[in-house]
Design a binder for these strands. Structure first.
Length: 421
RNA sequence: GUGGCUGUGGCCUAACGGUUAAGGCACCUGUCUGUGGAACAGGAUAUUGUGGGUUCGAAUCCCAUCAGCCACCCCA
C-alpha cells in the first residue's frame, strides 16, 4: 500500500482513461462552437456567500455538501459546487450585459461536493455547463435543450430521452406548493419518514420519492402544469410547440423537480441508458430570478449542467466508439553508443520539422523496437554504423512490416508522404 | 450523514487455521551480440489495507479503524 493515497471521492484520471475525456471535451467544444457559445473559464473557488445565496440556503448543496474553508485572510471561501452562480457573478462583474444579447456562454472544469462517492459521483467531479443569459422567450430554452441533446447524440449515446416539466414562477409556484402540501397532509399517516420530512422542508421533493408505497401518492398528486399562471403556461406551450414541430420526442414528467432554488419555468433532463441509480446525464432549466438575486439587473436566463464522469461511464457501458489518442509517428532506434549522438541530432532535426518523434534511451536494438511497437509508433528509424557512413536511414514501417533505406536529405519528405498516404 | 458488500505484487485471481503466500496479465531480460508484434525461458515486484486480540501457529477467526464499491438522503 502506498504511503499517500487519494482522498475520499477523488480520482486519478490515468493515461489509459484520457481518450474518453478528450473525446468528450472535444465533442462539447465542437457543439458549443457550432451553436455559437463562447467559452468562459472561472476560478474554482468563490466567496461562500455567492453560493449560499445563488444556490439557495436550504438546498442540500449548501447545507451539507460545500467544501468551505477560511483562507489566510479570514475570507470565507468555497470550492465551487456548480458553475451557474460563478458564471452569473462573472457576467455581472465584467459587465457582460453590454454584449449583444443573448449572451451565450459555456464552461468546463472541476467542481466539488462533500458527499459519499457512488457510481459516477465524486467529491471532485467534472462538469460542463451552458447558459443563455438575457432572453426570456422559449426559443432560448429550446436552444439549450437542443444543445444538450446534440452533445450526447453526437457521442452516439443510446436510449436518449428528454424529460420535461415546468416549475412555475414566483407568481404561481407558491400556491401550487400549498396545493401539493395539502394533498400530502391529507394522507400524512400513510407517508414514509422521508416524505414526512420533505413535506416540511421541500414539498416539491415529495414527487420524486422512489419508494413503492409512495408511488400512489405521487400519481394522485396535483400536477404543476395544471396550476401554472397564464405567462408560465404560455411559455411552456410555446416550448412544446417548438419541440413538436421538430419532431423531438420528450416525456412530460411532472415529478421532475430541481434541487436548486433558482429554477423557474422550464426544467428538463436528458436521460441515457446504463448509469446505475442515476439516469440523467444532464439537467437544466430556466432561472429568471438568479441574476437579480445576486446583485445584478433583473435578467432572464436558461442553462444546463452535466457531469462528465457520468458521460464517461455511459461511453464505457454502451461501448461508444472513442478514437485513440494520437501518438508520435516516429521512433528512433540506434545501435550502440557510437550512433547515439547522431541519433539525437536526427531526433531534434525531425522535431524542428514538425514531426513527432521519440528516441530509445538505450538497450538492444531488439528491445528498442519492442518498445517502439508498444508505444504505437508508425515508423522506427534505425541507425547503425553502416547507415551513418552512407548518410542514410533505415525506415521501418511498423504497421506494414516492411522497411527501406532512405537518403538523409529525403527523409522528412518520405516520412510526410507515407504518413499522408 | 445512514445501510449493505469488499480489502492478497501495478492489475485480476488462488491458497482446509499449519512448510518459503500460488497463478495469470502487464513490466524487464534473454533465446535472436542489426530488427517489433508470436512462442519459449528467466527476472524483478507482497511486512495479505492498518492496529489490536484469540491461538503452539492467522491471508484465513474476533474487535476496532481506514479505504473502496453499491445503494439511500440528495444530486450532475
Amino acid at each position: 500500500m502506498a504511503k499517500y493515497t487519494r482522498l475520499t471521492g477523488t480520482q486519478d484520471i490515468l493515461p489509459e482513461e484520457q481518450r474518453y475525456w478528450e473525446h468528450f471535451r472535444q465533442t462539447v467544444a465542437q457543439v458549443a462552437l457550432d451553436y455559437g457559445f463562447d467559452r468562459i473559464d472561472l476560478p474554482i473557488f468563490e466567496m461562500t456567500e455567492l453560493f449560499a445565496r445563488g444556490v439557495g440556503e436550504n438546498t442540500d448543496i449548501v447545507e451539507k455538501e460545500m467544501y468551505s474553508f477560511q483562507d489566510k485572510g479570514d475570507r470565507d471561501i468555497t470550492l465551487r459546487p456548480e458553475f451557474t452562480a460563478g458564471v452569473v457573478r462573472a457576467y455581472i462583474e465584467n459587465g457582460l450585459h453590454v454584449q449583444p444579447k443573448p449572451v451565450k456562454l459555456y464552461s468546463i472544469g472541476p467542481a466539488f461536493r462533500y458527499e459519499r462517492p457512488q457510481a459516477g459521483r465524486y467529491r471532485q467531479l467534472h462538469q460542463y455547463n451552458a447558459e443563455i443569459i438575457g432572453e426570456s422567450g422559449p426559443m432560448a430554452d429550446l436552444e439549450i435543450m437542443l444543445m444538450a441533446w446534440d452533445i450526447y447524440a453526437r457521442l452516439d449515446f443510446q436510449g436518449l430521452a428528454f424529460q420535461l416539466n415546468a416549475t412555475g414562477c414566483p407568481a404561481c409556484r407558491p400556491t401550487y406548493i400549498e396545493t401539493l402540501a395539502a394533498h400530502y397532509r391529507a394522507r400524512q399517516d400513510a407517508l414514509c419518514d422521508d416524505c414526512l420530512r420533505r413535506l416540511e422542508q421541500n414539498p416539491l421533493r415529495l414527487l420524486d420519492c422512489k419508494r413503492e408505497a409512495c408511488q400512489g401518492h405521487i400519481a394522485a398528486a396535483p400536477k404543476i402544469t395544471a396550476h401554472l399562471c397564464a405567462e408560465c403556461d404560455a411559455h411552456f406551450a410555446e416550448l412544446r410547440g417548438f419541440l413538436d414541430d421538430l419532431g423531438r420526442p420528450y416525456t412530460l414528467n411532472h415529478t421532475l423537480v430541481r434541487g436548486l432554488d433558482y429554477y423557474t419555468k422550464t426544467v428538463f433532463e436528458v436521460w441515457a441508458e446504463g448509469i446505475g441509480a442515476q439516469s440523467a446525464v444532464c439537467g437544466g432549466g430556466r432561472y429568471d430570478g438568479l441574476i437579480e438575486l445576486i446583485g445584478g439587473p433583473a435578467t432572464p436566463a436558461v442553462g444546463f449542467a452535466a457531469g462528465i464522469e457520468r458521460a464517461v461511464l455511459v461511453m464505457k457501458e454502451q461501448d461508444v466508439e472513442v478514437p485513440a489518442l494520437p501518438t508520435p509517428p516516429v521512433y528512433i532506434a540506434y545501435l550502440g553508443d557510437a550512433c547515439r549522438q547522431y541519433a539525437v541530432r536526427l531526433l531534434v532535426h525531425l522535431r524542428e520539422a514538425g514531426l513527432g518523434a521519440q528516441i530509445a534511451m538505450g538497450g538492444s536494438l531488439r528491445s528498442q523496437l519492442r518498445h517502439a511497437n508498444k508505444r504505437d509508433a508508425r515508423f522506427a528509424l534505425i541507425i547503425g554504423e553502416d547507415e551513418m557512413a552512407a548518410d542514410v536511414v533505415m525506415v521501418r514501417d511498423l504497421h506494414a512490416g516492411d522497411q527501406e533505406t532512405v537518403a538523409q536529405d529525403a527523409l522528412i519528405a518520405t516520412l510526410r508522404s507515407r504518413l499522408d498516404a
